[in-house]
């Protein structure tokens, strides 16, 4: 659930199109079929707006919270080359948050409201960032494999229907490809280094494998909602599809480095071309996403600290006449 649409189980609406003007709706859907992008001032169904806000906002939160586990290692990165690269990488992630908050704002929710919802726990962010980066090797695994998962997700979503989100994602993806290279290089050095380094990186992979398998979210429930979101090009691929793509591309690379993936069942079924694997513990996923992971409290505490400590600066930028107006169509 980096940026992939999640169906809100609390969503009571019987149908996502309930109450919409059928003529406008038909026109809207025809535009999407023609491959046109929907822009902020265009007509759109309320459920489309709502889903996109939720998705882009969660994605933005994931970037800003995602800066924390790696950010704590900037001060400990070994050597100038790694220190500078990690700084630039985490900076990029914060930049992604900025781009995405702006993209979400075009749909009518202010950055302040989004950040408030983040720190009061109302809106979510990617589950993986509720796990700690225990050693330097964890940051290498994150930069390589979590960013790899994110790229698969983001490239897929950049072909979606909402213009501002697609454009933000295109820019983000070009930066992510550097992160991936940085992460891979880092893992290569560790896995071909001293015994201590090899152990560090294997331990980190063991720790991170479950969160990595969780990354694209649980298998989708087949529902009418899912169908509609796919038709609207809000959801571009099923969670399992993205997970397969990830496994297909990265498992061989991980094995190439002599690392062991902690799943004895993991292999590609040569006949079906499908990856067999042990389902990660989805109960753990649910627990963590609902607030009971190893770092949820800490992450939000840090974010809240930053918001509270920075409030006076933001107040000092406000002028009475420059009050924010919502750019609704």
């Amino acid at each position: 659930m980096y940026g992939n649409a999640q169906i809100d189980s609390k969503d009571k609406a019987k149908s996502l199109t309930e109450g919409e003007d059928p003529i406008k709706l038909a026109e809207f859907e025809a535009r999407i079929i023609r491959g046109e992008k929907i822009e902020p001032k265009d007509w759109m169904p309320a459920a489309y707006r709502k889903q996109l806000i939720r998705m882009i906002e969660q994605h933005a939160h994931s970037e800003i919270i995602g800066a924390l586990p790696e950010g704590t290692w900037i001060t400990r990165a070994p050597g100038f080359r790694r220190k500078l690269a990690l700084m630039a990488k985490v900076q990029d992630e914060v930049g992604h948050a900025q781009l995405l908050y702006s993209a979400a704002e075009t749909l009518g929710k202010t950055r302040e409201d989004m950040i408030n919802d983040l720190i009061n726990g109302k809106s979510k962010y990617s589950n993986v960032f509720n796990y700690p980066a225990m050693t330097w090797a964890d940051t290498a695994i994150i930069a390589w494999l979590i960013d790899a998962g994110a790229i698969i997700n983001q490239v897929t979503n950049s072909k979606g229907s909402y213009g501002p989100y697609c454009r933000a994602l295109e820019r983000i993806c070009s930066e992510e490809s550097f992160h991936l290279k940085y992460g891979h290089d880092n893992v290569v050095f560790l896995s071909t280094g001293t015994q201590q380094q090899r152990e560090m990186v294997q331990d980190a992979l063991n720790r991170w494998w479950t969160p990595i398998m969780h990354f694209h979210g649980p298998p989708d429930k087949v529902s009418q909602h899912t169908e509609v979101l796919m038709r609207w090009k809000v959801k571009m691929a099923s969670n399992d599809d993205m997970r397969y793509r990830f496994l297909d591309e990265y498992v061989p690379k991980i094995w190439d480095l002599g690392l062991t993936i902690p799943d004895p069942k993991l292999r590609k079924n040569e006949e079906t071309g499908v990856w067999d694997y042990t389902e990660p513990d989805w109960e753990e996923f649910k627990r963590v996403i609902n607030g009971d992971g190893p770092c949820n409290k800490e992450r939000l505490q840090v974010r809240r600290w930053a918001e509270e400590k920075g409030a006076w600066v933001r107040r000092a930028l406000l002028k009475a006449e420059s009050k924010y107006t919502i750019p609704l169509a």
Binding site: A306, G310, A311
Partner: peptide, 8 residues
């Protein structure tokens, strides 16, 4: 990093 008063 990650703690600034504004993302900018």
């Amino acid at each position: 990093t990650g703690l600034g008063p504004l993302v900018e």
